[in-house]
Simulated scan of single mutants.
Amino acid sequence: MAEVHVLAILYAKEGKEGELRSDLTVVTESSRNEDGSIRYELFADENDRRRFVIVEHWRDAAAQERHHNLSGHIRAFHENGDRNVERRELVCFMSRVT
């Protein structure tokens, strides 16, 4: 099975940057410990305090799907943390070319 890479960019609601950062930090720390997680990092855009970028690297599609569909911390984020998200600018599933 091929490794899976995900790039996600979330944009915080005005005044909710700190709350979204905290929510995404919890997601990141929990996701790093999941079976199949190779890399899971959270970045803040230095030019726009409202933009956060998540870079994920999974052993295979099954591990990424378990993470997205079955992880309690992801479910909790969608039920609670989403309130701080203005929009998802990009979610991109990628495979390495070289």
Rank of each mutant, 00 (worst) to 15 (best):
C92V: 10
D23W: 15
R87V: 14
S95I: 12
L10R: 09
I74Y: 02
S71M: 08
E29C: 07
S31T: 10
R96A: 08
E34N: 06
N47K: 07
E65F: 12
L7A: 12
T28P: 02
D35T: 11
S22A: 14
G18C: 05
R49V: 10
C92F: 10
G18Q: 11
R51C: 10
T28G: 02
C92A: 13
I38P: 00
A8G: 09
D60K: 04
R88G: 07
D82I: 15
N69K: 06
K13G: 01
F43Y: 09
S31C: 06
R88C: 12
E17Y: 08
M94C: 04
H67P: 13
V85L: 13
A61M: 11
R75F: 04
N80L: 12
A62K: 09
K13E: 01
H5S: 02
V85T: 11
E89Y: 05
G18R: 09
V55E: 00
N84Q: 13
V55K: 01
F93T: 15
R21P: 01
A2I: 13
R21G: 00
E19V: 14
R66N: 10
L90A: 13
E46C: 08
V26Y: 06
E46N: 09
L10T: 13
L20D: 00
M1G: 07
E29M: 05
S30P: 01
R87Y: 06
T28F: 06
C92R: 13
D60I: 03
A12V: 10
N84E: 04
M94Q: 06
L24I: 15
R51H: 01
K16Y: 04
Y40W: 05
H68P: 03
V53I: 13
R50G: 00
S71D: 03
S95Y: 08
F93K: 11
V27I: 13
R66I: 14
R75Y: 07
D82E: 14
I74R: 00
N33Q: 14
E17H: 12
A76N: 09
W58G: 04
R75I: 15
